[in-house]
Structures are given as structure tokens and as C-alpha cells.
């Protein structure tokens, strides 16, 4: 379990590439800089895609974990 406190949860369970990233990006737009999005996905591709997306968009991947085929990411929105 993580002790990071998220501001928003986006459940991308069941979605396949590219939708977890496409929809997470949309969700991220509604957050303020510094706020944290918790992204939950069952798409194995997310393991590579979410870090790439976070890095390219100036957001910070704080932590990710994996269990029972579920991938959980905490992404902090960049200030820019």
C-alpha cells in the first residue's frame, strides 16, 4: 500500500492501448500543478506507456506498483 494521498483517481481498468494514456491526459488537464492523479490500469502496456507519457508531459511519476494484473501509478502534475 502507498501512503501517497491522491487528489483524483482515474480508473482505466479494462481499457487497452492507447486509451489509458489518452484518457489520463484528459483527466490531468482538470488538475492543478502539484496535484496527484492515481491511475489504475489493467493494460500491461501501461507499464511502459505511463512513465513515457508522464516524462513527456512534464508530470512526475511518483510511484507505481503491480498486483494481480492491476497496475497503479501515482502521477504528480507538473507546475508548468
Amino acid at each position: 500500500m502507498s501512503d501517497i494521498k491522491e487528489d483524483r483517481v482515474f480508473d482505466a481498468t479494462g481499457l487497452l492501448c492507447p486509451m489509458p494514456v489518452v484518457k489520463a491526459a484528459k483527466e490531468m488537464k482538470t488538475l492543478e500543478g502539484g496535484q496527484i492523479l492515481k491511475l489504475v490500469s489493467t493494460d500491461r502496456g501501461s507499464l511502459a506507456d505511463v512513465p513515457a507519457w508522464a516524462e513527456d508531459t512534464g508530470n512526475q511519476l511518483l510511484e507505481h506498483s503491480e498486483g494481480n494484473g492491476v497496475f497503479t501509478f501515482f502521477v504528480k502534475k507538473g507546475e508548468g
Binding site: 492507447p18 494514456v21 489518452v22 489520463a24 491526459a25 484528459k26 513515457a52 507519457w53 513527456d56 508531459t57 512534464g58
Partner: peptide
């Protein structure tokens, strides 16, 4: 296209 937009 959708992904590249998501990447900003």
C-alpha cells in the same frame, strides 16, 4: 494521433 496529442 490520439496518443501524440496526449503526450502534448
Amino acid at each position: 494521433a490520439a496518443t501524440s496529442a496526449a503526450l502534448g
